[in-house]
Design a protein around this nucleic acid. Sequence first.
DNA 1: CTGTTAGCGCCTTCAG
DNA 2: CTGAAGGCGCTAACAG
Lengths: 320, 320
Amino acid sequence: MNIKEIAQRSGVSVATVSRVINNNPKVKLETRNKVLSVINETNYYPQFIAQNMRGRKTNMILVVIPDIINPVFNVMIDGIVQTLNLKGYKTIITVREGNLATISTYTDLLKGRQVEGAIFVSSSIKKELFIELNQSYNVVMCSEYFDDVDMPIITINNEQAAYEITKYLIRLGKKNIAYFSAKGESSSSKNRKKGIIKALDEFNINYTPNSFQKSNSKKFDFGNQVIDHIIKYPDTDALIINSDFQAVYALKALKKFKRNIDIVSFDGTYFLDIIDDNITCIKQPFFEIGTKAVEVLLNKIEGKSYEKNNILAYKLINGI
Amino acid sequence: MNIKEIAQRSGVSVATVSRVINNNPKVKLETRNKVLSVINETNYYPQFIAQNMRGRKTNMILVVIPDIINPVFNVMIDGIVQTLNLKGYKTIITVREGNLATISTYTDLLKGRQVEGAIFVSSSIKKELFIELNQSYNVVMCSEYFDDVDMPIITINNEQAAYEITKYLIRLGKKNIAYFSAKGESSSSKNRKKGIIKALDEFNINYTPNSFQKSNSKKFDFGNQVIDHIIKYPDTDALIINSDFQAVYALKALKKFKRNIDIVSFDGTYFLDIIDDNITCIKQPFFEIGTKAVEVLLNKIEGKSYEKNNILAYKLINGI
DNA sequence: CTGTTAGCGCCTTCAG
DNA sequence: CTGAAGGCGCTAACAG
């Protein structure tokens, strides 16, 4: 069933049918009704793809998230989807499955003009690919960014946040603080490390390369890694964990040990609400990061100007 | 940049360029190389939409989930995405934002032939709309189903599961069991209620309409609702909660009361791992439900036969 | 208010 | 092995 058949059955031209479909006001009511009734009878629906052939906007945005389990991304997606809906865009969400490389399957959507732009959440894309896409398409990354790339930044001041939360631990009297960050060199991990070191230096607290650990990828096993670390470095008295998701597993594992080890974490998502303990954390404005990312992207798409440095406010939530 | 320009720059016809793009073997190596180099220089990429105009497959599947916060859907999505990837399909995930009606924005993808089929996860679509789509498109629903609709079923035996978990509580000596289910009349809630009543009847345990509560929608506030219920019906000694997500909030709220109230839940997701208590639950095979949904859908799309009644095995995980 | 006509970018016969 | 030409379903001038 296509527009031509509808035209024939209605006894009008395809142009008229097209006008009816697109709510063009200059169609006689009588004609419109006739066409509409035929459309109804035949269950006809215009082919989206064909409509787009004539240079129409698709009004679709691609969103790529690293994984679907971490609550961080859920909250960000919430902000993104709600804002895009508000602006009349549809959202296509895609999960990067483990391998960073496979994401190219989805960037086809961009290259094939199926979507008008893309938001890469956190570290869901490799630097090289981002740079390439950044030249020809409307793309935005949020929560993380790449050094030496001309791109808008939508994140918090990770260095400052890490500095603050480290000072918090130091004030509690902690002397052997370890930081567990994600694998790879993300902008956030790097900046957090800087902040931590700044605080440690300021208070003359000792640290070694072993104070900075990379977490293994198997999230559910993170607890074991933490235990191993505690056993290997028994002086450890505080842990800074890169995400709530890992922090809760670390905490659960640690409870078996009765030593005075504090855990603090980044994120501050609802994950921390469902456990009994109160974890001190840096609460990130994930919803707003999503919102802001959409704003920047849409401005880019529409050729408007936009703020390049979007450093949003975080909060240190004191768990005691 | 389009195929015509590439043809001109390469000194060949558009047909030849098209052949190169589609790896048609009968192009002289020399010609192919020339075209390829031009494509490379110009950063040309064929327009997906235009390719599809000629009746090609889009190889994209739409997945609609009710919300993005509940871990249940994350796990199911995982199963769906992984299986679709394996089969060479791309997945477009969409979140139903609150209102069931707004999902029609996305069913356009189906009607507009942008996707070849859709998987509606749990209760992410209204019965009427599903029935309508079910007539003309390749759609599948998983975890839930509609009565009196000719559709494949991919779920667990909720009645049996509820029956078992209720008996578990009865054996513990519970006499006043309340069931909190989601709003609306989903197939799972209905069947679970049946199973619960069957067990209660079998052991001559009393119940009233108040034993069957509908949870309010504000998930994070669910704890308060539970507390209210306990205060209003102080004899309550056990709660069957419809989902892990709610169960953990209920549990946290309940801990303030020192009465002997047990909580059991449906789902058995990783949410239950991160809390200290061990909750007895019905562990659903969400990953497999997702996998099976894909299998059924692809068979439908390819006109193959498929199993209509996919009742997957659950497990009663004893929390003690 | 309505119809005719020319594409949108690509693929696919059909000739050569 | 390659090119010319028609068409996928729809929209957008341009006439009338």
